[in-house]
């Protein structure tokens, strides 16, 4: 694990990667996403764990994404995610529609190093017909009990923002343990941290309980405010809803989206 700059951090994400991103109630690495747009990647397979918003919409609008695996993509209170909506309606992205616990179970299977997990509910949903990789079997323990299996989801990279990182590469996420699940399931994990923790997070039992140990962390970069304009559990800040409402309006057209990028000073690399 290493402490790097933001640019070095996103240079570890390559075109074609399966990139896992967290839900907006967790820690979304927005500064890293802007840096990633500037770096310019293509054909990402985005895995929303299990849902996403502005981050996904930016990556889709900038043409970085080939596949979206998600239970939902929206801007929450600020409405539908316009670039996602447009891309999905026009068939520009391959959709792997899912439901929240199916993605979480897939990540848990990867975390456990097993090929799949069974999951309750969902039977009768058209999602099952769409997903060639989901199987319905008979519960081998109880006859006549159909059960859905979802395959393991192993991202190439997980990317998120966390409140604290120490010099040893440990990252504190507190109760936002979906970030820990993502790190456990992924081949590599890149984290922007709000603050550097002086000392060893694992040495303090209060922090240790909510700490992702360094073995799972590929690199961290210290980026204060790295989640903005989204809210962040780490400091109690709330999402800048005016920013999102403005984005939603502009990004209804591709031209408006380009204008948003320009206003934000984001140059999309090729």
């Amino acid at each position: 694990m290493s402490r790097v700059t933001l640019e070095q951090l996103v240079s570890k994400i390559s075109s074609g990667d399966k990139l896992a991103i967290p839900p907006e109630y967790s820690g979304v690495a927005m500064a890293a996403t802007r840096a990633l747009l500037t770096r310019g990647v293509k054909n990402l397979h985005l895995i929303a764990c299990p849902q996403a918003g502005l981050q996904a919409d930016l990556l889709i609008g900038a043409g970085c994404v080939a596949t979206v695996e998600a239970a939902g993509i929206s801007l929450g209170e600020s409405g539908l995610a316009p670039r996602f909506r447009d891309a999905a309606q026009q068939g520009k992205i391959r959709m792997l529609d899912a439901t929240c616990p199916a993605i979480q179970s897939g990540l848990q299977a990867a975390e456990k190093g097993i090929p799949f997990l069974p999951i309750r509910g969902i039977l009768g949903s058209d999602l099952i017909d769409l997903r060639d990789d989901w199987l319905v079997i008979d519960n081998p323990y109880t006859e006549g009990d159909p059960l859905l299996l979802v395959p393991a989801i192993q991202p190439d990279v997980s990317l998120f923002h966390a409140p604290l990182g120490d010099d040893y590469g440990n990252v504190w996420v507190g109760i936002r343990r979906e970030l820990m699940l993502m790190a456990h399931a992924s081949k590599s994990t890149l984290v922007t941290v709000e603050k550097r923790y002086k000392g060893d997070l694992l040495a303090d039992p209060v922090y240790a309980a909510g700490t992702i140990p360094h073995m799972y962390i590929t690199a961290t970069a210290e980026v204060a405010g790295g989640m903005r304009p989204l809210g962040f559990f780490g400091d109690g800040s709330v999402t800048d809803v005016e920013h999102l409402a403005g984005y939603e309006k502009l990004a209804r057209s591709q031209q408006g989206f380009e204008q948003y990028l320009q206003e934000q000073g984001i140059e999309v690399g090729s």
Binding site: P50, Q51, A70, A71, G72, I73, S74, L80, A81, F84, R85, A88, Q89, G91, M95, D97, A98, T99, C100, P101, A102, I119, R120, G121, I122, L123, S125, D126, L127, L130
Partner: peptide, 21 residues
């Protein structure tokens, strides 16, 4: 018609699961 929907909505979220449980 999926996937060329006239209006794409956000997605199923947890409904497919919680609806049964």
């Amino acid at each position: 018609d999926y996937p060329g929907t006239k209006l794409r909505l956000p997605g199923s979220f947890g409904s497919a699961y919680l609806y049964h449980l």
